[in-house]
């Protein structure tokens, strides 16, 4: 598919979006009853499921406990059926371990961990279908799950990717655009304070363009924020009416 035109002269991307448009986001909170918090999100064809346990006391080795804050434990995995060709190993490979670390960093920055010294918060995320922007979908799902679990956070963490193709910054890349191998930025943002929880970039991008790409990414994050906020409000509304009965 070397010849595929990622951005046409008319300004359409392969899937018919324009440069700054997000894929359709659908999300649900509280999908499982056993876990403390859970959420499911679809960003286009990328589907992710997040489950949160905690805060609870340390499991496993107690020596890992931190005396002044909670330990955030993350695990990222991809379902074997999530990609075009069946995956052998759902987690534990190099790529997943890296993603796990990134998630951990992101949520250590967002959760008010100092409220729960010597305890542990577990975040498990699984990609059910991968179509680009896996990290972003995971962060967004985990945010919703954390909120569902009632763990205090500084702000929502919203993540979105942005790429740079044909001298134009594109928001929220899908798999085809990612696979083209152009520069890609993944940004996790605390939208109210405009603070960056995590920023990652692949491939080479000229310094001059970085600002534009960052702008596109943070705009996309804020758009995601609007959607997530609505989902949370709807969920709360639903739960309260149920309780009220």
């Amino acid at each position: 598919m070397a010849g595929l035109e990622l951005l046409s002269d008319e300004g359409y991307r392969v899937d018919g979006r324009r440069a700054g448009e997000l894929r359709k986001v659908r999300a649900r909170m509280g999908v499982f009853a056993q876990a403390d918090g859970s959420a499911y999100i679809e960003q286009g064809n990328t589907k992710a499921l997040a489950v949160v346990y905690g805060p609870h006391e340390m499991r496993g080795s107690r020596s890992k406990a931190l005396h002044d804050r909670a330990l955030v434990n993350c695990q990222y995995s991809m379902a074997t059926f999530s990609t075009g060709e069946r995956k052998r190993r759902p987690h534990g490979d190099r790529k997943s371990s890296e993603m796990t670390l990134h998630l951990k960093q992101t949520f250590e920055a967002a959760i008010l961990t100092q409220l729960y010294p010597r305890s542990q918060i577990d975040i498990y995320v699984q990609i059910l279908q991968a179509d680009g922007g896996n990290y972003c979908a995971c962060v967004n799902a985990a945010t919703l799950a954390t909120i569902d679990a009632g763990i205090p956070m500084r702000d929502y963490v919203c993540a979105s990717s942005a790429g740079f193709i044909e001298d134009t910054p594109l928001a929220d890349l899908n798999y085809v655009e990612e696979a083209a191998g152009g520069p890609q930025v993944a940004l996790a943002l605390l939208p109210k304070s405009d603070q960056i929880a995590l920023l990652e970039m692949n491939s080479r991008l000229h310094e001059d363009h970085l600002e534009q790409v960052m702008e596109a990414a943070s705009k996309a994050c804020k758009d995601v924020y609007a959607v997530l906020d609505q989902v949370v409000r709807d969920h709360v509304h639903e739960v309260t009416t149920l309780l009220g009965e």
């Binding site: 899937d15 018919g16 979006r17 448009e21 359709k24 064809n45 075009g84 060709e85």
Partner: peptide
């Protein structure tokens, strides 16, 4: 914007046939 899906049959890297689902957004 309305969202639909396109299903394509493509040849994968190893020459096997792979089913690919791509999104397709429509706009007025």
């Amino acid at each position: 914007m309305q969202r639909t899906e396109k299903v394509l049959q493509l040849r994968g890297l190893q020459g096997r046939s792979v089913r690919i689902v791509r999104e397709h957004y429509l706009r007025p």
